[in-house]
Amino acid sequence: MAGGAVVTVRLVRSFEQRNYKPVVFHGVSLEQTVQNFIRFVRDDIATRPGLPPPFKKYAYDTMKIIHQPHGAKTNELVMSLEDDDKLILQDNQTLNAAGVANETELAFFRREDYGKYKANPQTAW
């Protein structure tokens, strides 16, 4: 695809608080590795204007596909807790091989937080 893909990355700060911010990236090469894309996103959000500081400085380390174009959306408010083995992106894969396509939506979060939330999926209000 000429010009690269449009990928939305949902920065998940807290699963319990449902605290997240979507950030849209244009011109994403789907041939780059997941590891390179994670590095790129971290560098971008660290300097992105308009993003609150807690989102900029958070120790995100894992990406998971939330939604693919023309697919069914999850009814989980932050992201689905299902199919981690298929939907969590592996560092050494290309985005394309991991299942990322144009207009895919990804969650970017800290794996430790996700593990805790998944063990006890309660939301705090």
Results as ranks from 00 to 15, higher is better:
residue 26 H to C: 03
residue 21 K to Q: 14
residue 30 L to T: 14
residue 46 A to K: 13
residue 51 L to S: 00
residue 33 T to R: 06
residue 44 D to W: 07
residue 39 R to S: 08
residue 74 T to M: 05
residue 71 G to T: 12
residue 42 R to G: 04
residue 29 S to E: 04
residue 40 F to D: 10
residue 24 V to K: 14
residue 23 V to W: 00
residue 49 P to W: 07
residue 64 K to N: 06
residue 27 G to P: 01
residue 48 R to F: 03
residue 38 I to W: 06
residue 25 F to G: 10
residue 20 Y to N: 11
residue 24 V to H: 01
residue 53 P to A: 04
residue 63 M to R: 00
residue 30 L to V: 09
residue 37 F to Q: 09
residue 60 Y to E: 10
residue 69 P to N: 02
residue 21 K to H: 10
residue 25 F to T: 10
residue 65 I to F: 03
residue 68 Q to E: 12
residue 40 F to P: 01
residue 22 P to S: 07
residue 38 I to A: 11
residue 30 L to I: 09
residue 53 P to Q: 09
residue 46 A to C: 05
residue 58 Y to A: 09
residue 70 H to D: 13
residue 56 K to M: 00
residue 65 I to Y: 11
residue 64 K to T: 13
residue 56 K to T: 02
residue 58 Y to G: 03
residue 58 Y to N: 07
residue 21 K to S: 15
residue 27 G to K: 08
residue 46 A to R: 13
residue 24 V to W: 00
residue 39 R to C: 04
residue 31 E to H: 11
residue 73 K to S: 14
residue 41 V to H: 06
residue 23 V to S: 08
residue 74 T to I: 10
residue 55 F to V: 09
residue 39 R to A: 14
residue 42 R to A: 04
residue 31 E to P: 02
residue 58 Y to P: 02
residue 47 T to H: 13
residue 38 I to E: 06
residue 74 T to N: 00
residue 25 F to R: 11
residue 63 M to I: 11
residue 73 K to N: 12
residue 43 D to I: 02
residue 60 Y to I: 08
residue 30 L to P: 08
residue 26 H to D: 10
residue 26 H to E: 10
residue 33 T to L: 03
residue 42 R to D: 03
residue 48 R to Q: 05
residue 34 V to T: 11
residue 51 L to P: 00
residue 42 R to F: 02
residue 60 Y to R: 15
residue 54 P to W: 01
residue 27 G to D: 02
residue 51 L to F: 01
residue 73 K to V: 11
residue 46 A to H: 12
residue 45 I to A: 08
residue 20 Y to A: 14
residue 31 E to V: 08
residue 45 I to W: 01
residue 71 G to S: 14
residue 61 D to M: 03
residue 48 R to S: 07
residue 44 D to E: 12
residue 35 Q to P: 01
residue 23 V to N: 03
residue 21 K to R: 12
residue 70 H to P: 06
residue 66 I to M: 14
residue 39 R to N: 14
residue 22 P to Y: 14
residue 26 H to K: 09
residue 41 V to R: 02
residue 46 A to P: 04
residue 33 T to P: 06
residue 30 L to M: 09
residue 72 A to V: 11
residue 48 R to I: 03
residue 71 G to Y: 09
residue 31 E to R: 05
residue 28 V to S: 06
residue 35 Q to A: 15
residue 21 K to V: 13
residue 27 G to Y: 06
residue 25 F to Y: 13
residue 28 V to R: 01
residue 22 P to C: 12
residue 29 S to L: 14
residue 62 T to K: 08
residue 30 L to R: 01
residue 70 H to I: 05
residue 23 V to Q: 03
residue 39 R to F: 01
residue 70 H to S: 13
residue 57 K to I: 12
residue 73 K to T: 14
residue 31 E to C: 01
residue 34 V to M: 05
residue 26 H to Y: 13
residue 59 A to G: 05
residue 54 P to H: 03
residue 49 P to R: 08
residue 66 I to F: 04
residue 22 P to W: 11
residue 44 D to Y: 05
residue 63 M to P: 00
residue 64 K to I: 11
residue 29 S to F: 02
residue 69 P to Q: 07
residue 42 R to Y: 01
residue 27 G to M: 00
residue 51 L to M: 00
residue 73 K to E: 10
